[in-house]
Amino acid sequence: MSGMSKIVKTISSITFPLITIYGLYVIAHGHLTPGGGFQGGAIVASGCAMMLVSYGSIWIVSRVKEKNLSILESLGAVCFILLALLGLGFGAVFFNNFLVGTNSLFGVVPAAGSGLADINTGGVIPLMNFAVGLKVIAGLFGIVLVMAHASRTKGEKK
């Protein structure tokens, strides 16, 4: 599809970084607040889809290749499975949360009950959030990009 008017392009350029930052915040605080990898990834992918609608798929495809998005998505999946396998190696079982209680990165156990948020908790859950978030961003944006690029009309090839 082709791009839209100058006004839409300007507003999209202004709001796209804010949407991306908010989505990354939701991903990074997935173990503390409502949200997580899926929801934050969907937010960032929505921002990318907004850029796609306003600028047109030809402009986007000349900068972002779908092959690279596919590689990013596979990277997220591999990171996720690798973290699960590390649980098998360090602990006893697949998907074992081996980082919790070690007081290292993300290893602090919070006090039971209602409390303030401490970002340094959660074990492997924040890392898995990042892996799944990368996977969802690349996957959803890849789907939207491919479908939008396939629906362009004949005269728009430039």
Partner: peptide, 14 residues
């Protein structure tokens, strides 16, 4: 057990 304040995320990932 999981160190996460969000019980839903601990169910999803752990």
């Amino acid at each position: 057990e999981t160190g996460a304040n969000n019980a839903v995320t601990s169910v999803v990932f752990d």
